[in-house]
């Protein structure tokens, strides 16, 4: 287990290093001078040249990369060109906001998705199965921004039940959470149903039933646990996606989360934020996949980390 973890962490570091190189160089060769954008239309060439030098952007790109990498390793992600604040502070603030939104969306997607999936599988072929699966197709197909706008119009404008936008209270995150989580809930529901159906047809389930165990005891104790592996896989990757923010949902609900911040920064060529943000997303994704791999062993003891390649 120990050597596996070390190997995985080293792999992760390699991946992150590669991403840092690609991110830095690609962003720096994309046309669009951040100083020119920052200083606005009226700035003269002399001012642009002076500020460029003050920001160290007149140095060779390789020098800039190593400076950035060295500083980043020491926890200094640089300073935003526009906000004039440390990038790390900006990332942490945005992350905490996104985490609240992600928490609600994730809770919704897992709880609702698993419940719907199990109920549909248990009632296979009945009207409730058809109804729930039709609903899940709708959930997957409907764009999140459309759901967001519909929710805003009906829940906020017409019924005045929840805040329309902002982050002033926990209730502000409910609608964006639903809008963001619906799609993931639908995916989880379909995966859970498929996985449950597969497990429910196994011999050991029939044995358990033959032993006279109660229906729900069989489902929860024997079927559900074994059906969880594919669900965990998708749940892990979903958490990665949700935690990296949703630009559209954050824009519509005026949530200053990480997704929106990244897109705004790309538009203004605020490179330190974009570079820091991409590194953050890379780290989150790498960690999530690592956690998912480790979780497998708890769910299915047949999977052992050290012998992953053999199993």
């Amino acid at each position: 287990m120990g050597s596996y973890l070390v190997k995985r962490v080293l792999q992760a570091i390699g991946v992150i290093l590669c991403i840092s190189i690609i991110t830095f160089f690609v962003l720096n060769i994309v046309p669009g001078n951040p100083v020119r954008i920052m200083l606005g239309e009226f700035a003269d060439e002399a001012t642009i040249a002076r500020v460029t030098a003050e920001m160290g952007l007149d140095q060779p790109i390789i020098v800039q990369y190593f400076n950035w990498l060295k500083n980043m390793l020491m926890g200094d992600f640089g300073v935003s060109y526009f906000q004039n604040k440390p990038v790390l502070d900006i990332l942490v603030t945005s992350f905490l906001i996104t985490a609240k939104l992600a928490g609600i969306a994730y809770l919704l997607s897992i709880v609702l998705g698993v419940v719907v999936g199990v109920v549909a599988a248990v009632n296979r072929g009945k009207w409730i199965d058809s109804f729930l699966m039709t609903l899940s197709v709708f959930g997957i197909s409907a764009p999140s921004f459309w759901i967001a706008i519909i929710l805003q119009i009906f829940i906020c404008l017409k019924l005045n039940l929840l805040p329309l936008s902002g982050i002033s209270s926990v209730s502000s995150f409910i609608l964006p959470g639903i809008a963001l989580g619906t799609r993931y809930a639908a995916s989880v529901a379909r995966i859970t149903r498929t996985s449950m159906l597969e497990v429910l047809s196994q011999d050991y389930i029939r044995t358990a039933q033959a032993k006279g165990l109660k229906k729900w005891a069989v489902i929860i104790k024997h079927a559900f646990r074994n059906a969880l592996i594919p669900v965990i896989t998708i749940a892990g990757s979903e958490l990665g996606s949700i935690l990296t923010g949703s630009v559209l949902i954050e824009s519509i609900f005026q949530i200053p989360g990480i997704g929106k911040m990244l897109v705004d920064s790309i538009n203004t060529r605020d490179l330190p934020i974009v570079q820091g943000g991409v590194m953050y997303i890379a780290v989150i994704c790498v960690i999530m996949y690592l956690v998912v791999d480790i979780l497998y062993t708890f769910v299915d003891p047949r999977i052992t980390l050290g012998k992953e390649s053999e199993s």
Binding site: Q152, S165, I252, Q254
Partner: peptide, 16 residues
Amino acid sequence: IRYFDDSNTKMMEYEQ
């Protein structure tokens, strides 16, 4: 002064 980057949302807030 409240910040809104989405003009539709801003107008809905005004409407409300």
